[in-house]
Design a binder for these strands. Structure first.
Lengths: 172, 172
DNA sequence: GCTACAAGTTAACCTTGGCTAAAATACTGT
DNA sequence: ACAGTATTTTAGCCAAGGTTAACTTGTAGC
C-alpha cells in the first residue's frame, strides 16, 4: 500500500476556510520555466547521491564519539539494514576516501570523512533544534530532521538558526 | 567532487560564540536507542520510495492544468531527464494504477493518481509558503521545498501552516 | 497520400542500495 | 591453544533510476 492511501490529509485541508494566502504567494501556482524547473529536480537528485554517504559518515562519527569505536554490527543495527549492506556501502565510502579501516577491523574516518561528518552533524542539529523550537514533538522532529537535513540550503539553515536562537531566548 | 567540499560551512559555524543552545537541547547529542534510530532511517528510506512517484504525478497534474496535456517530452524537459527514463517511469506509474494512457499518446491521472497529486501539491505549497514566510529567497525556497516536501510529517506541516498564517497576517 | 520530422518506446547497459546464504576472520573462555 | 561464537566479507540475486542508440508511431506540409 502506498503511504498516501492511509494519510487522511486531503479531506482535512482542502478548501479550508483558513486559507489566507496573500496574493503575492498565488504565483506559486504557475509553472516555473522548464530549465529552472529541471535544475530544481537536478538539485534534489544530487542531494540524494550524497545523502546516504553523509548518514553513514555522521553515524560513524557518533559511534566513535559515544562508544569509542564504530563496528559494522552497530551501524547495521542503527540503520536497520543487513551487515552485508553495510559492508558494501563501507567499501564505497573507502573508495571515496571518506573512511579507512583494515579488513575485519573497526572503522575510522579520514580527514575528509570527518569534515563531512562535522558538517552533516551541524546541519542535522540545526534542523532538529529548529523543528523543536517551532513546537514539533521530539520524536517527530527527529524523523523529519533525518529526512530534511540533506535538502536544506545554506541560506535556509542560517535562517533556521536565527529563528531557533530568538525562539530559544524567548522562553529561556 | 563531493558537494560538501565547496560548501564552506564549518569554519563559519563551529564554536560560534552565539551558541545559546538551552540545556534541554543538549540531549540531542546522545544517540537514541538502536531500534528507534533504525526506525528513523527506515522512515527516510520509505519516503524515498514514493518521492519520485509523487514528483511525477504532481508534475503531470500541473501540466494538465496549465497546458491542457501532459506529454512525456515536457516531463523529460522539466525533470531534466531523458525521454527513455520518463517512459520507463511512466510504465511503473501505470502498473501502480496512478497514471493511464494509450501507447504514444498523452498521459492522464487515474483517481488514485489525482489524489496523490493533490496531496503532494498541498504539501509542496505549504512547505514553499512556509519557507518564504520565514524569509527565504524565492529561488532557494523552491529548491529546498522540492527536496524537503517528502520528508515533512503531518504534524510539522500543520505547524508550518499555522506559522505561515500568522506571519502572513502580520505583514499583510 | 507520402515524406520528413517529432515524439514515444524498447533494448542493452550502468550504478546504487537492498537482500540472503555461505565463507573467512577475529575473539573468548576453558 | 583451540573450539565455538560473533563479526565481517563475498557472492549472487533483485528493483529502481539513470544513460544511449535504435526502432516505431504519430503528425504536418506539400
Amino acid at each position: 500500500m502506498l503511504p498516501y492511501e492511509h494519510f487522511g490529509y486531503i479531506g482535512a485541508m482542502t478548501d479550508s476556510p483558513n486559507d489566507v494566502t496573500p496574493d503575492r504567494l498565488r504565483k506559486a501556482d504557475a509553472l516555473p520555466p522548464s530549465d529552472q524547473h529541471a535544475q530544481q529536480y537536478a538539485a534534489v537528485r544530487n542531494a540524494h547521491e550524497t545523502e546516504l554517504l553523509e548518514d553513514y559518515v555522521e553515524l560513524i562519527a557518533d559511534l566513535l564519539e559515544h562508544q569509542g569505536e564504530a563496528r559494522s554490527t552497530d551501524i547495521a543495527a542503527r540503520m536497520g539494514v543487513s551487515q552485508a549492506t553495510v559492508s558494501k556501502t563501507v567499501t564505497r565510502l573507502k573508495s571515496l576516501g571518506l573512511v579507512s579501516s583494515k579488513p575485519y577491523r573497526s572503522l575510522f574516518l579520514t580527514e575528509k570523512g570527518e569534515a563531512m561528518a562535522a558538517m552533516s552533524h551541524q546541519r542535522h542539529a540545526i534542523v532538529l533544534q529548529f523543528l523543536r523550537a517551532l513546537g514539533v514533538n521530539d520524536r517527530t522532529a527527529r524523523i523529519d530532521a533525518e529526512g530534511m537535513e540533506h535538502h536544506v540550503s545554506q541560506e535556509t539553515l542560517e535562517i533556521m538558526q536565527r529563528y531557533t536562537r530568538e525562539q530559544g531566548g524567548r522562553d529561556a
